[in-house]
Design a protein around this nucleic acid. Sequence first.
DNA 1: AAATTACATTAACAAGTGTTCATGTAAATA
DNA 2: TATTTACATGAACACTTGTTAATGTAATTT
Lengths: 194, 194
Amino acid sequence: MKKSTKKVRFLGVVLELIHKKGFMATTMRDIAQELNFEVANVYNYIDSKQALLEEYLFDIQDEFHSAIDPIMGSSLTATEKLSLVISSYIQITTKRPYEQALLVNEWRNLKEPKLQEFVKRRKVYENKLQGIIADGVEQGEFRPLDIEIATQTILASLRWLHMRYLDTEVKLNPVKIDKQLTDFILLAVANTTI
Amino acid sequence: MKKSTKKVRFLGVVLELIHKKGFMATTMRDIAQELNFEVANVYNYIDSKQALLEEYLFDIQDEFHSAIDPIMGSSLTATEKLSLVISSYIQITTKRPYEQALLVNEWRNLKEPKLQEFVKRRKVYENKLQGIIADGVEQGEFRPLDIEIATQTILASLRWLHMRYLDTEVKLNPVKIDKQLTDFILLAVANTTI
DNA sequence: AAATTACATTAACAAGTGTTCATGTAAATA
DNA sequence: TATTTACATGAACACTTGTTAATGTAATTT
């Protein structure tokens, strides 16, 4: 549609509104009111309510892929790769907590065929991480984990963080967070003590 | 309202429907159709759509409290307590995955004042676990973690499990899950190797 | 057998839903 | 200056929403 600064503002304001009320509970009239104009004008910014959700979700999902791909392509050890994935995940979350919250909470509200596309793409990301874990176990860097459970557990352990970067809550120090979570996960998968 | 077996069936069928479609997207007419009767009859089972959500959420939340309370009251070590909390969490999740899914995904759709009540009660649970962590750090059983981050991370690492016990997916072996997750978390918080 | 309760229907309600159309004006471009 | 583009409005649309009222019948209790 557009790409002016007005649209940027629109997306930012609406993102917070959707996060606060939930996507389904946010009506087009809610959006219009938040921006002090009439309902019909919302359609000068977006094609539909669904398209709006898709725009947010696929955009933030792309960011996660852009972060993991160069790590996959590198020739680092599994431990180093895992560490980098964790750090990149935290970095994206602290930079874009509202989008991350949508990613966690609202992806279910996508409709087919976009829903399938989203889930498939998420699975690709998970498989990349799972590849790192499998490699680490094979090389003896990690203990003999069930790699599927380990992958899901690691991702889950990172999936709460956005809550601490929303609204007026006291922000946690990203560097401290990074150290705590990296230590936590690396200790959990490691074969040896540090 | 009631407590007959008809109501039990009602709650079971509707629980799955709500999980599949999402609470907001599930209409009273959807519910009626799923049970092969008319909309108005839904109100012979529940007072309102909101009350239905409240019934599910506070019931499963109570189950988590009932599980953690006796552990808190015991005179075990922090490590033993943490281990038991993890196991009880997994047990509830595997036994009632749909309710657990609601707990994770749909609590936001509660309305005041029930929403506040829910959040407050969840905080109580979190504080109990946080007490165990704090104790473990003080006693030197655990490493010097940031106890708030550790608590949230542990809980988050358990919060994906219900997904593997829903629908027609291949169920994971609960005993294996228990061992993998307990190892994962205890290693992550431990001061020493096992 | 009579009375109460549990389960069901038909019909309607007031309010809200996403979206479109026709139209207008301010701003940017030609 | 003329014209296109960006941003805005008012009115309406077809449909869906949760909920209630009035009423009926099957099952259970007295």
